[in-house]
Write a protein that binds this DNA or RNA. Sequence first.
DNA 1: CATTTTATTTTGACTAATCAAACTAGATGG
DNA 2: CCATCTAGTTTGATTAGTCAAAATAAAATG
Lengths: 220, 220
Amino acid sequence: MPSSTVEDYLKCIYLEAQRRDGMLPMGALARAMNVVPGTATAMVKTLSSDRLVNYRARVGVSLTDAGTEIALQVVRRHRLIELLLVQVLGLDWSEVHGEAEALEHAVSDRVIDRIDAMLGHPRVDPHGDPIPSPDGAFALVGTVSLAECPRKVPRTIVRILDQDPDFLLFAEKNGLMPGQKVTVVSRDKSSDAVEISVRKGKKLTLGSSAARKILVDEAS
Amino acid sequence: MPSSTVEDYLKCIYLEAQRRDGMLPMGALARAMNVVPGTATAMVKTLSSDRLVNYRARVGVSLTDAGTEIALQVVRRHRLIELLLVQVLGLDWSEVHGEAEALEHAVSDRVIDRIDAMLGHPRVDPHGDPIPSPDGAFALVGTVSLAECPRKVPRTIVRILDQDPDFLLFAEKNGLMPGQKVTVVSRDKSSDAVEISVRKGKKLTLGSSAARKILVDEAS
DNA sequence: CATTTTATTTTGACTAATCAAACTAGATGG
DNA sequence: CCATCTAGTTTGATTAGTCAAAATAAAATG
Ligand SMILES: [Mn+2]
Ligand SMILES: [Mn+2]
Ligand SMILES: [Mn+2]
Ligand SMILES: [Mn+2]
């Protein structure tokens, strides 16, 4: 069985590689894992000799099929746990990411299957992140953000691309959660601002980097 | 924060010391922790320098107040998790001890408080083991076992002193669970047997070591 | 192209947790 | 009391995961 450290590295490589194209540079991995670069290099070498990643010195790292499989299991556990904490135990969606970070390594398949069943085989977690099925499949949703979707057309929020508790609390307070309606009123290039209106016509202005974190559905 | 290894040692010392009198010998600790004696000695020395245990070479180990406090927190987490797994997620009582062994180190106070609230501040776990309150207090129950309680008097089972899945499955199959009624019919010294009758007058014979694991209430 | 900067790798060291095996300190007992 | 047994302790290694700092490769720049 992989240690929880190995699980975290694989999950991190998987999630970081979503953004970027091919190989994940060691510097990015080290930053994401909060370790010094030498530590990332050392770890990646052992992952490589275990055939969990492909490593090319001074280029970067990518997951093998075996590594992807483990990463997806960890992501599945993480997101099912988040949903359990929100829906069954009543924690706030801003708190659950941190909690799940530890619990994802401590739940067995048996327990995760029970959680999955009790929640009715959910497809997404509280932040709209997709939950891989036991065999690693999942649907991709909402690839357009408030920073680029058409204006004046009401949309439904489907996903939030940030786990930071402060951002999530802000989002929650302003009704920016999956399922909520939102319309982009205007955008201004120079001021980098996106003006939106949420439920009850409440207006709100976001910087574009925040707007980019809020994904809405494709179909109007 | 103590590592999960330290938490397990402290919990183990706490639980093993329940049986025995004063100091727990290193051999007993090593056996209970599944490590070689030298490992237990080394660990206990570091616990001792952290003021979590009192250690006297060639005598044994006992918990300090600080050590007891940690041990009780771990026991509290363990037992609340067991109850959650049984009552909310529907796992069998024979499975939950093993699951809780890992989860007890991964749940935060925040999560454990929510579990406690959701379960209605329970006093005992699925095996009848008492759940310490956040400040470490708990009630002692059922100090008499089927091996020594009076015969022919119906009793209620309050606690099972064994976490072995096989034993628990056996007990479950025969209705030997907390809350169930049971009566000792007869005992035989030479054959070491305890004959009991459970719900619906079903008869069953236990060896005395098994009988000693089933605790019943004091008052008839 | 030679030089400087930056990213990555290497080297050397450390901590926590463990085991195997050699070594006592006490108890047991003739 | 000496010999032996046994439980417990020491010593010497090992593994996983990490950091600091030196070394180096590659990229960027004048
Ligand atoms: Mn994690
Ligand atoms: Mn999430
Ligand atoms: Mn444990
Ligand atoms: Mn229990």
